[in-house]
């Protein structure tokens, strides 16, 4: 298992190198450049040339690329053309927001998805099973952005239960330390932050979590039903092991394999794919920052964000795989693939 981790981690730089190169090339293949954005409100031809030179964009592409890779190797993500700030700092501000949202969504997805899946699997073919399957499919089929708007209208506007935007109410002063509100609330001894923070997190997390819960429900249901049919479960039952114990020790543990994979995949997708939720709910996450950076041709920011998301994706997958191996005794014994 350690060998496998080492192998996967050893491959990480290759992945990053390819992702970095692809983003670098793709961004420069786009029409328009930062200079057009910077110069758009007041420009003379001379000023534009001067800008291009100052940003180093007059250098040949291979040279720009070498400089970029050189900086990367030294751990320097560069500086934003537009904001003049360190990309690493900007990532440090936006990534925790996205992780918060992804984790909260994951919790919603697991509670709702697993709950519905297990309830449905308890009596396959029953009316409840049918209804839950329909609900799951519907959740999956909802366009996320549309569902988000609907949530705002219902829960913010009509019922007035929950705030519709942002991370904290404007009346609260919050000085970030780690940018994770929960951790900061503990570190700085401000428990009063947690309530408002959760309230603001609820709608976006529900939107992302519920729309992804559908798939998990179907998997959990299928996994449990199929495992329950297997011989070792039957024999456990025949041996008179109490049903609860059979369910938790045998059925659930085996079904967990498939479920774990889905959870890992979905979490990875949430990290990079929460852009839409971030736009609808005005959540200042890394996805929105990355999209904005592409649209304004702020090369360094787009490159930095893409790289960080790629690293996270790989790490999440690695952790999922390890959990998978841990959960499955057969795989644990094998010395890696």
């Amino acid at each position: 298992m350690i060998a496998e981790i080492a192998r996967r981690l050893a491959f990480l730089p290759v992945t990053l190198f390819v992702v970095a190169t692809l983003v670098f090339l793709a961004l420069r293949a786009l029409p328009g450049s930062t200079v057009d954005m910077l110069a758009s409100s007041f420009s003379t031809a001379g000023l534009r040339d001067q800008l291009i030179a100052q940003l180093g964009l007059d250098q040949p592409l291979w040279k720009q690329y070498l400089i970029y890779v050189g900086d990367l190797v030294r751990g320097d993500l560069g500086r934003s053309f537009i904001t003049g700030r360190d990309v690493a700092t900007m990532v440090g501000e936006t990534l925790p927001v996205t992780i918060e949202l992804a984790v909260a969504s994951l919790v919603v997805m697991m509670v709702v998805g697993l709950g519905m899946g297990l309830a449905a699997a308890a009596r396959p073919g029953s009316l409840l099973d049918g209804a839950l399957r329909f609900v799951a499919m519907t959740l999956f089929a909802l366009p996320w952005f549309w569902f988000g708007i609907l949530m705002i209208v219902v829960f913010s506007l009509w019922l007035g239960w929950l705030p519709a935007f942002g991370r904290l109410p404007s009346s609260v002063t919050y000085e970030p330390v780690t940018n994770f509100v929960l951790i900061d609330a503990i570190l700085t001894g401000r428990p009063e932050l947690i309530g408002p923070w959760l309230a603001h997190l609820t709608l976006p997390a529900l939107t992302v979590g519920l729309t992804t819960a559908g798939m998990l429900m179907r998997l959990a249901r299928a996994g449990v039903i199929e495992t329950a049919r297997l011989d070792f479960v039957r024999s456990a039952r025949m041996k008179g092991v109490p049903p609860g114990r059979v369910f938790f020790r045998h059925v659930l543990r085996n079904a967990a394999l498939g479920i774990l994979t889905v959870i890992g995949l979905q979490f990875g997708a949430m990290l990079g794919g929460s852009v839409v939720a971030e736009v609808v709910f005005g959540y200042p996450g890394i996805g929105r920052m990355m999209v904005d950076a592409v649209l304004t041709r702020d090369y360094a920011v787009a490159q930095g964000a893409a790289l960080v998301l790629a690293v996270l994706y790989v790490l999440v997958n690695l952790v999922t795989d390890l959990a998978y191996r841990w959960a499955d005794p057969r795989l644990r014994r094998e010395p890696g693939r």
């Binding site: 705002i152 913010s156 519709a164 935007f165 942002g166 009346s171 736009v279 609808v280 005005g282």
Partner: peptide, 15 residues
């Protein structure tokens, strides 16, 4: 004065 980021119109009108 608190200048608060609220990019979406729906959220602005609600607030």
């Amino acid at each position: 004065i608190v200048m608060q980021v609220i990019p979406e119109a729906v959220a602005q009108m609600t607030s």
